[in-house]
């Protein structure tokens, strides 16, 4: 037995005691730098247009998102669909959606609320215009055409 031990002395085991610390560090990094996925998309994930004059949206809590794109499920038909929260909706529901978003915030925050329109590159301007007309009716005037950083040539 003693002989056996002597042989093993050459390679001590690497201590794994700090492994949890490393993993926790990674965990905290991801917790801080990412956001929870809020909604399940019922439309196909929009391929955002590219632009180089983009501004970052600050204060995520003040941003409400409207998705525009083709439905994943063919039973909803072809054509551009609008998704608000968790369901596919029509343009008429945009008002109710914005009102419910406003109800979540203090009154003094309302002028800073932004609507981010996440529309697919191949959707039609008409759909987006309808949404904008509705937003204008209820004075939700700050909007952002969601786009990724890139070359505008990719939009054609």
């Amino acid at each position: 037995m003693s002989k056996f031990r002597k042989n093993k002395k050459g390679l001590p085991a690497i201590s794994t005691a700090s492994l949890p610390d490393i993993v926790f560090m990674l965990l905290f990094f991801f917790m801080v730098s990412t956001t929870m996925r809020e909604t399940d998309l019922l439309i196909k994930k929009p391929l955002l247009p590219s632009a180089n004059e983009v501004k970052k949206l600050e204060q995520k809590s003040l941003v409400s998102t409207i998705y525009v794109g083709k439905a994943k499920d063919s039973k909803y038909g072809a054509g551009d669909k609008i998704q608000l929260n968790d369901k596919l909706s029509t343009v008429k529901d945009v008002r109710a959606f914005i009102y419910s978003e406003r109800a979540k915030h203090n009154e003094d925050e309302v002028p800073y609320m932004t609507v981010s329109i996440k529309a697919d590159v191949n959707s039609y301007v008409g759909t987006v215009t309808d949404i904008k007309a509705e937003l204008r009716e209820i004075n939700a005037l700050k909007i952002s055409y969601s786009s990724k950083r890139g070359n505008i040539k990719d939009n054609f």
Partner: peptide
């Protein structure tokens, strides 16, 4: 956390709609 979160930052072209 890796599975349930996303990392995308929302960015876009900011516009102000005209008042009614």
């Amino acid at each position: 956390f890796l599975v349930t979160t996303t990392m995308d930052v929302d960015s876009g072209i900011a516009r102000k709609l005209p008042e009614k």
